[in-house]
C-alpha cells in the first residue's frame, strides 16, 4: 500500500480497530451491556431509536451552530478591540480569564432563571463556552505584528487602521481559523450541558431520559451521535481554514 493511501485509510483503520478491541473486550470479560455496551449493541440502539436520535441530533446541531455563530461574531469583534489597544487588553484580560474560569454548568441555572428552559439557554451556553479561544487567538495575532513591518508602514504615513487592514487582520486569519476548530467542539459541550439539565429536546436530554430508563446502549448511541457531529463540524472548520489561509500552512513538518 502506498504511503498516500495509507494516510487516507488510517483514520478508518484506527476507528475500526478501536471498535473491534472494544467489542472483543466486552465479550472476553463478559462485561454486562448495562455497564458497558459493546459497539454492536450501540449499533442496534441506533437502528431501533433512529427517529429520536436523528431529530434530537439536528436540534443539538442547531443550538450548537447558532451559539457558535454568535461566538464567532462576538469573539472576532472583541478580539479586534482587545488587540487594538494595550490599555483595553490590560483591562479586559483579567475579566475574561475570570469569566472563562467559571464552569459553564454553573451558569446554566442563571440562564434558565432569565430565559426559561429549552432553546435559548442551550444556545447561550454554547456561545459562552466557545467565544474565549476565538478572542484570545485574534488578539494574539494582532499583538504579534512584526515591529519592523509596522515601522515600514508608519514611515509611509499609514494610520493605525491602515496597519490593521493591510497587515493585522490578514495575519490574524490563521489564528482565527485555528481557534474555530477548538471553539466548535467546545460549543457542543456547552449546548449538551445545557440540554441535559434544562431542556426537553436535544441529545443531552435524550441521554438523560435514556439514563432514567436504564437504556445504557441508547446513552452510548447519543455519545456516538455527538462525536460524529463534532468530527463533521471540526472537519468543516479545517477545510475552511485550509481554503482561507493556505499560505500559512506550507510547513512539511506534519506531512510525513
Amino acid at each position: 500500500m502506498s504511503q498516500q493511501l495509507l494516510i487516507r485509510a488510517s483514520p478508518w483503520i484506527f476507528t475500526i480497530v478501536t471498535a473491534l478491541v472494544w467489542e472483543a473486550a466486552c465479550r472476553l470479560f463478559q462485561i454486562p451491556p448495562f455497564f458497558l455496551p459493546p459497539p454492536t449493541a450501540i449499533a442496534e440502539a441506533f437502528v431501533e431509536f433512529w427517529g429520536p436520535i436523528y431529530r434530537n441530533s439536528l436540534y443539538t446541531l442547531s443550538t450548537t451552530l447558532i451559539g457558535f455563530g454568535m461566538a464567532v461574531g462576538f469573539g472576532l469583534a472583541l478580539g479586534l478591540v482587545v488587540g487594538w489597544s494595550r490599555a483595553i487588553y490590560a483591562g479586559l484580560y483579567p475579566l475574561m480569564i475570570g469569566f472563562n474560569a467559571v464552569p459553564k454548568v454553573a451558569v446554566v441555572p442563571i440562564l434558565v432563571l432569565w430565559f426559561g428552559i429549552g432553546f435559548i439557554p442551550a444556545v447561550l451556553t454554547a456561545f459562552l463556552i466557545s467565544f474565549f479561544p476565538i478572542v484570545v487567538n485574534v488578539a494574539t495575532g494582532l499583538a504579534t505584528i512584526e515591529p519592523e513591518l509596522e515601522d515600514v508602514l508608519k514611515a509611509l504615513g499609514a494610520s493605525k487602521l491602515d496597519i490593521m487592514r493591510k497587515v493585522g487582520i490578514p495575519r490574524t486569519l490563521p489564528y482565527f481559523f485555528g481557534s474555530l476548530k477548538v471553539a466548535i467542539t467546545l460549543a457542543f459541550v456547552g449546548s449538551v450541558i445545557s440540554e441535559s439539565t434544562a431542556s426537553n429536546y436535544g441529545i443531552g436530554n435524550l441521554m438523560l431520559q435514556a439514563q432514567a430508563r436504564f437504556e445504557v446502549p441508547l446513552i452510548f448511541a447519543g455519545l456516538v451521535a455527538l462525536a460524529v457531529e463534532g468530527i463533521a463540524m471540526y472537519g468543516l472548520m479545517a477545510i475552511l481554514e485550509n481554503r482561507m489561509t493556505g499560505w500559512a500552512q506550507r510547513s512539511g513538518f506534519a506531512q510525513n
Binding site: E146, E148, L149, D151, V152, K154, A155, L156, G157, K166, V167, P170, R171, L173, T245, W247, A248
Partner: peptide
C-alpha cells in the same frame, strides 16, 4: 509625525506571506 516620504528596509525582509 512620521515623515511619509521615507522608504525603509531592515535586516528581515518583513514581506507579507499572503
Amino acid at each position: 509625525s512620521p515623515v511619509k516620504i521615507a522608504g525603509m528596509a531592515f535586516q528581515a525582509p518583513t514581506l507579507l506571506p499572503w
